[in-house]
Write a protein that binds this DNA or RNA. Structure first.
Lengths: 141, 141
DNA sequence: ATGGACCCTGTACCAGCTACAGGGTCAAGG
DNA sequence: CCTTGACCCTGTAGCTGGTACAGGGTCCAT
């Protein structure tokens, strides 16, 4: 049966080889055994671990959070409340980001709606980017 | 009257001095004149320009986009359609991000709701992070 | 003249990768 | 057996948008 090289590991998880090595450097993946020719030789469990990492990354957790989650997942007898807490906090962060983007979106949409074409010198969008005074108009140079 | 030093410029626009210098390096702000003692000496127009930059950055435009917007604002006789296009594209990008975050948010909320407390070994959240098979559970090591 | 606030340049750092350069290894085909 | 090409190795630099020093110089008030 085929050895689990870094290329195969990467392909099986939709990761790039470089990213796998990066995760190793970052301490998310263990340093694997090496073959005679100094190739990384992974165990099938590493596949699970990497999939876990990808999944949590896809859910927007930072590498630090992923590390914490991996630790938690390792302590099978520990209470799962910490996991829940971390997830909740992450959810709150996401909600914050959504709210920020919505506000921004509305402002931008309002600006765009105000553009009636014409020359730059009378463009409402650019005006809105400029300071609120009635002076000379947008920045020089 | 007081010379417009970098500190004053920064303070007047809610920017840090370091960021102002960074914008200069990045080509967003012109290289200002220098005093005898090699201090940057700004013109009042630079204030406008920096405010423009801050405003567009707050609206989520990248530095590249800001540079483009500054160029457009400089060509006062040009058609403002390009500005509109850039803004529209930016809006679409924001909408995309919002959609992504919403999807992510729902998934995460679902996961959190599934957590009934207890030990890590039976935690639904961690399970959901793991590969979809019924095997040994979360990553080792 | 001295202290403190300000300014200067240059460099390194953050996340989370990505993209080389310059080599070594391995397996298949001729 | 040798070559070719795909893969792998390490190490380093780059990206975005700043932030944070270190180690110096300047300015101004007291």
């Amino acid at each position: 049966m085929k050895p689990l090289t870094i290329g195969r590991l990467a392909a099986a998880t939709g990761t790039s080889v470089e990213t796998v090595r990066y995760y190793e450097r970052a301490g998310l993946l263990p340093q694997p055994a090496r073959t005679e020719g100094n190739y990384r030789a992974y165990h099938p469990e590493d596949l699970d671990r990497l999939r876990f990492i990808r999944r949590t990354r896809d859910l927007g957790f930072s590498l630090d959070e992923v590390r914490a989650l991996l630790d938690m997942a390792g302590n099978r007898d520990q209470d799962c409340g910490t996991v829940d807490t971390l997830a909740q906090r992450h959810l709150a962060g996401i909600d914050g980001k959504i709210a920020d983007l919505m506000a921004l979106r509305h402002e931008l949409a309002r600006l765009i709606a105000s553009c009636g074409g014409g020359k730059v010198s009378e463009c409402r969008i650019l005006e809105a980017f400029s300071p609120g005074d009635g002076r000379a108009g947008p920045p020089d140079r």
